[in-house]
């Protein structure tokens, strides 16, 4: 990260925000959110949650609806899902791979994922 690149960012900010990026302006007015402790515009957090949830689909089924022995996540209780991740992380709940996953995500991501899957009908 150099000073020069930051300045070029400033230079284009006025230019391109007004010209082509209404989405960025709207996002900047929304409440900032956290990803792994870093502040971001809301649009980035929404995209982040959507994408990490889609990672879960690989084992837990498309949209969290499993067609195999691995449990579905869709429609489960939000508090239960977040608690499960915390328990996998601490080892209170035994797992085959979930502890390895729980260690790779943050507490706020547990909550965002839990809310995402709880909302799926």
């Amino acid at each position: 990260m150099t000073l020069k690149s930051v300045l070029s960012g400033v230079a284009c900010a006025a230019l391109c925000l007004s010209a082509v990026s209404p989405g960025v302006v709207v996002a900047a007015e929304e409440k900032p959110c956290l990803i792994a402790g870093w502040q971001n515009p809301a649009s980035i957090c929404a995209a982040h949650t959507k994408t990490i949830a889609a990672t879960c689909f690989i084992c837990h089924g498309p949209n969290g609806k499993s067609i195999g022995a691995v449990p579905s996540l869709a429609g489960q209780d939000k508090a239960y899902l977040a608690e499960a991740m915390r328990d996998f992380k601490s080892g209170k709940r035994e797992s085959t791979v979930m502890k390895k996953y729980a260690l790779g995500y943050s507490d706020s991501e547990y909550d965002d994922l839990a809310a995402y899957f709880a909302a799926i009908k």
Binding site: S21, G23, V24, A36, S43, I44, K50, T51, T55, I58
Partner: peptide
């Protein structure tokens, strides 16, 4: 998983938004 990160980034960019700068791969 990479495919979903790429797809999400393309959707954000086509809609004039910054792609998520912190992707995670499982």
């Amino acid at each position: 998983n990479q495919a979903k990160i790429c797809a999400a980034a393309l959707v954000e960019m086509f809609n004039g938004r910054e792609p998520n700068p912190y992707p995670v791969i499982g």
